[in-house]
Amino acid sequence: MRRSPLLVASAIAVYLFLYVPLAVVVVFSFNDSKLSAEWVGFTTSWYAKLVRNDEMLKAATNSLVIAVVAAAAATVLGTMAGIAMHRYKSRLLPFMVLTPIAMPEILLGVSLLIFFITTFGEESLSLLTVIVAHTTFCIGFVAIIVRARLAGMDESIFEAARDLGATPWQTFRLVTLPLITPGVIAGALMAFTLSIDDFVITFFTAGAGVPTLPLTIYTMVKVAVTPEVNALSTLLMLLTLTLIVVAGKIAPDAIGGKG
């Protein structure tokens, strides 16, 4: 099929609109100037400065701990939810699992905040509450990916396992789990990515003592967009991008693209 020039032009325009701001951030993270206004010269000093910044390191540690624990919890729960959604064709279950994805983040953030404060008190806001909050909204994503993986599979494979003498547990361990593993890993990476750059929900559930990377960037930007912020953003972008590419490689049917 021949593509119309108009279509090509508008596609290019959309891509520029999407990626030019990101490119600017990356470029200026290497700019040898305190002000992000014009290009002076190439430097990696901002990155060096970044790793010597204690506040920043603490935030990074927090973010990593939250992302790893929340992703792990969401992966276990989301996998179970995905299998359940596939097996029991209930209409309520997908609704309950997927609502946190569809709901505006701010709503989820506020309601979680109210929940934590009213149930456990003001001082309960901590690393733990952030982890719980992140787990909540990550479960749905893992569940969708695992279910997509199962949906593409011949149902009789699982019946065949039982037919040939496997107990339900053996069927899960020897057949179901190995077959959904790519989906599970992709889901885990997805959950990690979502958690590490989440701002809104973290903002509401973190309280004062738990700065994460996105929260710290926000605080820094309020003062000025320094090259240091650009450097940090670039690193985060790189991490996110890597994880998404890896997830897409492992489970192409689950993460958009060609299936």
Binding site: D154, S156, I157, E159, A160, A161, R162, D163, L164, G165, A166, T167, V175, P178, L179
Partner: peptide
């Protein structure tokens, strides 16, 4: 007697071989 304990095996139309 559940399926896994019946001395009865099935050949499915889709073969249902374990792909992994």
């Amino acid at each position: 007697t559940p399926a896994e304990r019946r001395p009865i095996h099935t050949v499915f139309q889709s073969y249902a071989l374990f792909p992994h």
